[in-house]
Design a protein around this nucleic acid. Structure first.
Lengths: 189, 189
DNA sequence: CGAATAAATTGATATAAATCAAGATTTCAC
DNA sequence: GTGAAATCTTGATTTATATCAATTTATTCG
């Protein structure tokens, strides 16, 4: 929980103790095993998670195959933006790739914080901006780079994730087949 | 300017008059002609725009060709998220596709509003969430849909834009060549 | 541990979309 | 309004990556 508070204080050093106290009371620690779902398609995302430890994958189903949209790791916040912000049924699945420790707050609790502690809107705004930018960067890579370039960038930017996830998940994140990633790898050795 | 205030009041009905007054004083009306740049690659985005009337395109250069990332129209806010939020040099070009009327505020002015009127963080947060979701939806379509499906969705979701922009811009938005879009169109008649 | 299952690799072929090239049409500028 | 330039369309060919199929390697769990 300290990591979470540290991030909030980095964003907004003057945040009140009352707010952090309240948030601390709301946070629900969850220890979940690999392959647990935080959200499945069709359901409405009711919780925001903070990854204390572990690894989470967001993906969509395309026909029968899945397409990974992102990986979130230690000290990241995890939601499905469309479903959480608009409280609409999700396209996306959120699934743990490792046994993980998470802190969660419900959508309603977050709204309550925003109401009761207007300061919290600053924190929410800045963090939303940050995750928005991250998402833009991912989309940028998808649009601008060839298969091989995407793989190179991934290997560089996601080094700590690279060795922890299955090739087929890396492949689907890069919008490629596992075969293609296998061949790119073979070529580089 | 009314349209902008209306949007802010929709997001936050209790927003103070003092805030709107201050914002009104900061806003700079700009009438710019087609092809004007709001931002070029390499520069740091210093302004946020509100489109009173007109059409704006965001794009990257890939080798010598350009790749469109979005179109923004009447009553949309326009920034290059990475460059504006992080105040870093832009990858992206922002260019008018039509003669337009815009309202702008500088990055520093926006920060001043956030400081002076903490309430404004609520507005900023909610709008950021909304544009983040829109961006996610665009990325989702790119990942999940075939060339033809992307074209169909575009024709449906961007109907008012469709007839106003060049085929090559539609093509690059769909991550296709103009030739391919031409063929898709021909097939549908 | 060791069988069963899933995942990764490698090779052969297919395919969607890009590229290259030429002509038709539209738009722009003087 | 007319010529020049840009854009769009259509066709032929190429190419990157997907798909299909078979084998090897890794993982799971009883």
């Amino acid at each position: 929980m300290d990591a979470l508070f540290t991030i909030i204080r980095q964003v907004h050093p003057l945040v009140s103790d009352a707010l952090l106290l309240k948030l601390g009371q709301m946070l629900h620690r969850e220890e979940l095993t690999r392959k647990s779902f935080l959200l499945t398609a069709g359901a409405v995302s009711r919780k925001m998670y903070f990854v204390e430890q572990g690894l989470v994958r967001g993906y969509y189903l395309k026909d029968d195959k899945d397409v990974t949209t992102w990986f979130m790791q230690q000290h990241d916040f995890v939601i499905s933006p469309l479903s959480f912000y608009r409280q609409r049924p999700s396209f996306e699945y959120l699934q743990l790739l490792e046994d993980s420790v998470l802190y969660s707050v419900s959508y309603n609790q977050v709204q309550e914080l925003y109401r009761e502690f207007p300061d919290y809107n600053l924190v929410g705004r800045v963090l939303t901006e940050d995750y928005y930018v991250r998402s833009e960067i991912r989309a940028h890579y998808l649009r601008m780079l060839s298969a091989e370039e995407r793989h190179t960038i991934f290997a560089k930017n996601y080094a700590p994730v690279m060795n922890r996830v299955a090739v087929r998940h890396i492949a689907s994140f890069l919008c490629l087949t596992p075969e293609t990633v296998s061949r790119i790898r073979a070529k580089k050795l």
